[in-house]
């Protein structure tokens, strides 16, 4: 499978990365080279093989069902959460208007 400029533009849009027309020209052949190379995986017989889900067997744990079980990741830390925001206003993240 190979990708053309229009496909790369579609992928970039899905990935929310603005890409200029000139960049599309450069990226498309690079992606094609990489995709052509990874396609050799198609020749591997994977009949009856399960896809890997956990590389080292582990059990998924549930944390204790209590408020602020871990104070670092619990609530009540609004200032810390907003400390690195490019635009924090009135205790919220500021963003451009999203409804007309």
């Amino acid at each position: 499978m190979s990708v053309d400029k229009a496909t790369v533009a579609k992928i970039a849009s899905l990935a929310r990365i603005k890409v200029s027309d000139a960049e599309l020209e450069a990226i498309a052949p690079e992606l094609n080279q990489i995709l052509a190379w990874v396609e050799q995986l198609g020749e591997v017989d994977v009949t009856g093989i399960e896809p890997m889900t956990a590389v080292i067997p582990n059990t998924l744990r549930l944390r204790d069902d209590v408020v602020d079980a871990d104070p670092l990741t619990g609530g009540g830390r609004g200032d810390a959460v907003l400390a690195n925001a490019p635009a924090a206003e009135h205790g919220f993240f500021g963003v451009p208007k999203v409804i007309e």
């Binding site: 995986l41 093989i49 399960e50």
Partner: peptide, 11 residues
Amino acid sequence: YYTQAQKVRTL
């Protein structure tokens, strides 16, 4: 691509 790669990873 992805599912095939995860199966190869198992192998």
